[in-house]
């Protein structure tokens, strides 16, 4: 009698545990049309941004965006265009972080996703590019 009750208890616990484990995801969902669109837009823009990264005109910020850090590295005639590129890129990045959080049904994860990206952009950037260290100063990789 006692053994049966215990067994039943353990079974119930196992079922609850398995249900909980199924909710935890091994991968984040990133295959949505919105995310694919943002990715394509950023990929296309990167051909224009690559030179600006290399010259040090723009750098990767600690909060997962990019910023014009040295306007003098851009010829005056192209400065306005550089500014627009930075603004458009940051708009896409913010949308990307939001869309990933939403695609996984966890809008509250946006900040943590942004923080994860901030680290990975810097980690994967090329030598010579500039990034912001945790205290906010620019560092050349």
């Amino acid at each position: 009698m006692r053994a049966t009750v215990w067994l039943r208890g353990v079974l119930v616990a196992l079922m609850l545990g398995v249900a909980g484990a199924a909710l935890a995801q091994a991968n984040l969902e990133i295959n949505t049309p919105a995310i694919a669109g943002l990715q394509a837009s950023m990929q296309a823009r990167h051909t224009q941004l690559a030179g600006l990264y290399a010259s040090g005109a723009i750098g990767l910020t600690r909060d997962g965006n990019i910023a014009l850090r040295d306007a003098n590295a851009v010829p005056l005639a192209q400065r306005q265009q550089a500014n627009s590129l930075v603004a458009a890129e940051n708009q896409d990045r913010t949308a990307l972080y939001r869309e990933i959080a939403r695609a996984n049904g966890k809008p509250e994860w946006e900040g943590e996703i942004r923080a994860t990206f901030a680290q990975r952009w810097i980690e994967k950037s090329q030598p010579g590019w500039y990034y912001q260290n945790p205290s906010g100063s620019w560092v050349r990789k």
């Binding site: 909980g20 909710l23 935890a24 990133i30 990933i100 943590e112 990975r120």
Partner: peptide, 25 residues
């Protein structure tokens, strides 16, 4: 399980790497 439900840091890193590789080719 709760730690995983809270924020899957490893999965987020993997997703970020995949997207960054695509964007930066």
């Amino acid at each position: 399980v709760t730690i995983n439900i809270y924020f899957p840091a490893a999965a987020a890193e993997k997703a970020a790497d995949k997207i960054i590789d695509e964007v930066w080719q």
